[in-house]
Computed example of a mutant assay.
Amino acid sequence: MRPQPPPGTLDDLDLLDPHLHASHDLTPLWRRLRATDPVRRHDTFWSVTRHADVLRVVRDPDTYTSLRGNMLRTLLRGHDPGAGRMIVVTDGPRHAVLRRVLTPGFGPRTLGPVTHSIIEATRGLLKALLREGGGDFVQEVAAQVPLRAICELLGVPERDRQRVLELTAQAMLGEEGTGVAARIAQSEILLYYTRLAAERRSAPGTDVISLLVSADLTEEEVLLNCYNLIIGGDETARLALAGGLLALATYEAEWARLRADPGLVGTATEEILRWTTPAAHVGRVATRAAELGGRRIEAGEVVALWTVSANRDETVFDDPDRFDVGRRPNRHLTFGHGPHFCLGAQLARAEIEALLVELRASVTRIEVTGPVTWLPSNFVNGVATLPVALA
């Protein structure tokens, strides 16, 4: 268990510091902000921590735009280079166009075969971990399943997938800093998809890249949306899978409850999504002056929507700091809401459900065997290493 933040005033805590999020459990801080200062002004941005206020912002892209970016790091620097071309940082008609292009790639017809592959991959990886007696669940299972799924959707050949995983990990670490390795990884990912997109133009298939290249999009839009899908589809699902296993290992009574009742797989999946909240915040910029939570937000000001706090809001969730595999209702905001609701929501659910089904079928005991480390990030939320033994 991570310690709570050090004592002091709210002004003493730097929410931009990625190491603060890795080294401390900020649950008490979010609770305090929701109760006393739910829309709080910092030096360079506003923090929004209540479920209702977060919901209000994401439902109103006219007032709170994503066109300058959707994470604090890029917003406070002034501009996201993918703005207006990458689906997560577009609004209005262009967002609608990109969504229409991409939606078929995440529909039931496409996800059916991918879901079957997810189940087979999860079963095989868990069996290997059982044979070995344990290992790092993040590297051995959680990092592998989402990569296979998103690579299958994008049509990435099997021979390239491990390298794509390595580059993705390096690129995401760079979201919190300016490391040379991270920038190189981001460039290599874009170069890789340049080559793959060229192949699909001459020989289109049924994958998502083929959908992109066959639409009326620029080459930059194709590449940026490929980059967004591989980063978002891999990283967030990996964190949900790893955090879900950690929750089951920590709350043994809930694991026993799930093992005894297969009907809880669906609600347990939603609870893992709420409990882990892989995207800690979503950023927006006010396009005009507006009132939010009793505060006046001026045009041009940056707003950070702390989903990790909204998903523990006591006015929405009964006993929110309790992990409950049977929680109903569960109105979490892990996938967002409104125009930017996550395209990959059903894919993420399929990955978590596959893990829970296979765990129930083959595992009786989950034991954490060493130190758990957390990602140093204010944007993505979750464990970096999770040593476990499975019996």
Rank of each mutant, 00 (worst) to 15 (best):
residue 350 A to Y: 04
residue 363 V to A: 08
residue 290 A to N: 13
residue 45 F to L: 08
residue 73 R to V: 10
residue 226 C to N: 08
residue 189 I to D: 00
residue 130 L to D: 05
residue 4 Q to I: 07
residue 186 Q to R: 15
residue 147 L to I: 15
residue 64 Y to N: 07
residue 262 P to F: 12
residue 339 P to S: 04
residue 115 T to W: 01
residue 157 P to E: 01
residue 175 E to L: 15
residue 75 L to P: 07
residue 322 R to M: 07
residue 304 A to G: 00
residue 80 D to K: 02
residue 75 L to V: 05
residue 242 A to R: 11
residue 80 D to F: 05
residue 204 P to N: 07
residue 356 L to F: 12
residue 68 R to E: 09
residue 302 V to G: 10
residue 225 N to I: 02
residue 18 P to Y: 02
residue 210 S to I: 10
residue 199 E to A: 14
residue 113 P to Y: 00
residue 29 L to V: 11
residue 65 T to L: 01
residue 80 D to Y: 04
residue 390 L to R: 00
residue 362 S to M: 15
residue 84 G to N: 00
residue 102 L to W: 08
residue 266 G to P: 07
residue 224 L to T: 11
residue 149 A to P: 09
residue 230 I to E: 08
residue 132 E to K: 11
residue 94 R to L: 02
residue 310 A to T: 07
residue 298 E to F: 09
residue 388 V to I: 11
residue 373 T to R: 13
residue 186 Q to C: 04
residue 215 A to T: 08
residue 13 L to E: 01
residue 245 L to I: 13
residue 67 L to Y: 05
residue 149 A to F: 07
residue 323 F to M: 05
residue 376 P to Q: 00
residue 325 V to Y: 12
residue 19 H to Q: 10
residue 216 D to S: 14
residue 174 G to T: 06
residue 107 G to M: 04
residue 202 S to A: 14
residue 351 E to D: 05
residue 105 G to F: 07
residue 246 L to A: 13
residue 192 Y to L: 10
residue 7 P to E: 00
residue 282 V to S: 07
residue 246 L to V: 12
residue 146 P to T: 09
residue 90 T to M: 04
residue 269 T to R: 10
residue 232 G to P: 03
residue 30 W to C: 09
residue 232 G to E: 05
residue 144 Q to C: 13
residue 91 D to F: 03
residue 13 L to Y: 08
residue 302 V to F: 03
residue 82 G to D: 09
residue 266 G to R: 15
residue 103 T to F: 02
residue 22 A to C: 00
residue 256 A to W: 06
residue 334 T to L: 00
residue 375 L to A: 11
residue 138 V to N: 02
residue 107 G to D: 14
residue 132 E to G: 15
residue 157 P to Y: 01
residue 115 T to G: 06
residue 138 V to C: 10
residue 355 L to V: 13
residue 5 P to M: 07
residue 65 T to V: 01
residue 332 H to P: 12
residue 366 I to H: 13
residue 117 S to L: 15
residue 276 T to G: 08
residue 169 A to G: 13
residue 164 V to Y: 07
residue 19 H to V: 08
residue 98 L to M: 04
residue 146 P to D: 09
residue 146 P to Q: 06
residue 36 T to L: 13
residue 150 I to S: 03
residue 338 G to K: 02
residue 281 H to C: 01
residue 301 E to S: 05
residue 326 G to S: 14
residue 4 Q to C: 08
residue 310 A to Q: 01
residue 43 D to R: 14
residue 156 V to H: 02
residue 240 A to V: 12
residue 235 E to Y: 01
residue 86 M to W: 03
residue 173 L to S: 12
residue 221 E to N: 10
residue 306 W to M: 06
residue 14 D to T: 09
residue 147 L to M: 15
residue 68 R to K: 14
residue 206 T to H: 14
